[in-house]
């Protein structure tokens, strides 16, 4: 990307729009807290998600479990599909780009989507580099499995972090592992002395300034959401209790037997995550969840979480 393109993307553009500040970029993520963001492929699904109480929808070509099943290259969704989704709902619309594919991101920004997910669920376009997210006015979310990965993405300009989990598996175990790892790392940083932080930054492979910031505040400098394998209201409650501030649900809704009711139940479970009586009520009406996969029985090459670290 050349310098003039960069400037025109992040700064004041031809329409007289001012530059996007970090406050505006993380601000939208703040508004999504305590809510559920749902994967959708077409406008009809987006409407179902909005009616069920989703705080945002994520447009993608195929839900992760179908990407897993069908194979091939998974790319940014069709523009016409995203446009239809944007027309059909009043909540924010996010869309996924391939890791490192800054041209897809430029297209989504020009289209006016509200958030971009540079996602391991799609087939990576660059195996060594992520998108320079500072160069964009639209905020980005990225997946992470540990604190080093989270801080590298934040260093590149991500304004929201989510666990990677293992998308399309219907299995919560990886999201739990990733959330516990990130939270554990953060807690550890808070008890280190200042003289220990540089070594820690080197070991995490993370920018020193961000490591110091986390050590002082005891939290990530951007919102921290959960994704990858959430299929039930109980899964949503578990992730919220482990420290997630919001929930992404991918295949869990539209691969279940009754998407509208499951979507609604997961929304209520996310609000009332500490209230088991409400969790009983929202869970008991549900029919079958999506089928799940045993991660330990999977081939290393089939894992999405190892892409773009």
């Amino acid at each position: 990307m050349n310098e003039s393109t960069k400037k025109s993307m992040a700064g004041a553009d031809g329409n007289g729009r001012p530059a996007a500040t970090l406050r505006l970029k993380t601000g939208l993520a703040e508004m999504l807290k305590g809510g559920v963001i749902m994967d959708v492929t077409v406008a009809d699904q987006a409407k179902i998600a909005e009616d069920a109480g989703a705080v945002a929808v994520m447009a993608l070509e195929r839900v992760p479990s179908d990407i897993r099943k069908d194979g091939g290259v998974a790319r940014m969704s069709d523009i016409s599909k995203i446009r239809e989704i944007m027309k059909c709902v009043s909540i924010p619309v996010m869309a996924k780009v391939r890791i490192g594919h800054f041209a897809e991101a430029q297209i989504l920004q020009a289209l006016g989507v509200d958030y971009i997910d540079e996602s391991e669920v799609l087939t990576p376009a660059d195996e060594s580099h992520h998108v320079d997210k500072h160069a964009f006015k639209v905020p980005f979310v990225c997946g992470a499995r540990d604190l080093g990965e989270a801080l590298r993405r934040i260093g590149e300009g991500a304004c929201m972090i989510r666990t990677k989990g293992e998308a399309g598996s219907g299995n919560i175990v990886e999201a739990v592992r990733h959330m516990r790892t990130v939270m554990g790392h953060i807690r550890r940083l808070t008890i280190l002395g200042d003289e220990e932080l540089m070594t820690e930054a080197r070991e995490l492979g993370a920018p020193f300034e961000l490591v110091r910031m986390v050590a002082r505040s005891g939290s990530l400098p951007v919102p921290n959401f959960a994704a990858g394998g959430i299929a039930t209201p109980a899964d949503a409650s578990l992730m919220m209790q482990l420290g997630a501030e919001s929930i992404f649900v991918g295949s869990g809704i539209f691969k279940s037997s009754d998407p509208a009711n499951r979507a609604r139940a997961i929304v209520e479970a996310t609000t009332h995550y500490q209230d088991p009586e409400i969790l009983v009520k929202v869970s008991e009406q549900l029919t079958e969840a999506m089928p799940g996969l045993d991660i330990r029985a999977m081939d290393e090459k089939d894992l999405m979480q190892t892409r773009g670290i």
């Binding site: 703040e30 508004m31 705080v55 929304v267």
Partner: peptide, 14 residues
Amino acid sequence: PGGETTALLKIMEN
């Protein structure tokens, strides 16, 4: 607070 009103209205229903 700030948030998404379509979601808030749905959550308040029950």
